[in-house]
Design a binder for these strands. Structure first.
Length: 310
DNA sequence: ACCCAGGACTGAT
DNA sequence: ATCAGTCATGGG
């Protein structure tokens, strides 16, 4: 299994073999939390861990990882293999829907990614599809990142993006998000908000700090807390999760307010509800049979209109 | 052509 | 505090 890989000339690649602890690479890397991994024709994954390019794949019941400067700790941390996932999932409530979601992809895990890149990805995520977020991530790397290998660019840091112009960002297909990302980059570059400090704060205060960043609302803040800072109690509610919560737990009632869904999720799914959220999200996106068919709302037609429609 | 996308911000009530 | 309008762009 020797896929050619454009390593840096000077730095020799490190080859690691780790325990998977049940990790499902395909599910994890296609579950809408990471946007810079690409599957090779042979089923391996090219991406970045700790700012270093690498290649990872499942071999038997082992996780293989190859890349310059790669360390066992970095890989274990990135994939959350250092966590007692079994015990964490055991805290889930007895819930047939959640069980279905887990059954669909038991090896789905939550990553601990670079906070800055995760911040950028989810600022760009608003009103975008996942494939488009991946495309934007790639555009930003090509336009502003540093060349690491053949066709490989690192993700630009905040200082780099802060030196750009809003117009150049807009050229990366950012649309109205260009201003958000530009302002956010300057906020981080000027240490107006410190992601290093956020990492040290309790989740509640960390969320408040993230909300000071332009383009970051409740949903995006929770995504960053969950997918970068390892805060498993964060429960991001996007249109998909909103849909699944409403349909499965509130009889698809449209007059249930968003805040009530938040309250429900926080109390129902337990301290590691972020994982529950990710199981549900992945399940309803990937399994076409996951949700029962939409309740057919028979349109109320006024008698006066009957004659018109013939 | 139409509708939707891992939403956030703004200004009017 | 709540709520509609608006913000670009691409996929299906």
């Amino acid at each position: 299994m020797s896929t050619p890989f454009p390593f840096e000339p000077g730095e020799p690649p490190v080859s690691l073999t780790l325990m998977t602890h049940g990790l499902d690479l395909d599910a994890t890397l296609t579950s809408g939390q990471a946007f810079s991994w690409k599957r090779t024709p042979t089923g391996q994954w090219r991406g970045w861990i700790d700012g270093r390019p690498c290649l990872v794949w499942i071999q038997g019941d082992a996780l293989r990882a190859v890349g310059p400067g790669l360390t066992r700790d970095a890989v274990n941390t990135y994939f959350g293999l250092d966590l007692p996932v079994e015990e964490m999932l055991a805290t889930f409530p007895s819930d047939p829907w959640l069980e279905k979601a887990q059954e669909f992809a038991p090896g789905l895990r939550i990553l601990r990614q670079d906070p800055w890149e995760t911040l950028c990805n989810f600022i760009c995520s608003s009103l975008k599809q996942i494939v488009q977020i991946e495309q934007i991530n790639h555009e930003l790397r090509q336009a502003f990142g540093e060349k690491v290998g053949a066709g490989l660019n690192s993700f630009p840091d905040a200082g780099r993006l802060a030196l750009a112009t809003e117009a150049k960002l807009r050229a990366c297909k950012l649309g109205f998000r260009a201003r958000h990302l530009y302002v956010a980059a300057r906020q981080i570059a000027a240490s107006e908000v410190s992601l290093e400090r956020v990492a040290t704060l309790p989740t509640e205060e960390a969320r408040e700090e993230l909300l000071r960043i332009r383009g970051v609302g409740e949903k995006v803040a929770n995504c960053i807390l969950l997918f970068a800072f390892g805060r498993a109690e964060a429960f991001p509610i996007d249109v998909w999760v909103e849909r699944v919560l409403r349909r499965l737990y509130f009889n698809n009632s449209q007059r249930i307010k968003h805040e009530r869904l938040v309250t429900f999720a926080n109390s129902h799914f337990g301290p590691y509800r972020g994982y529950a959220q990710q199981f549900l999200f992945h399940w309803i996106r990937k399994d076409p049979t996951a949700l029962p068919p939409e309740k057919v709302v028979t349109p109320r037609v006024r008698k006066a209109d009957l004659s018109k429609k013939g």
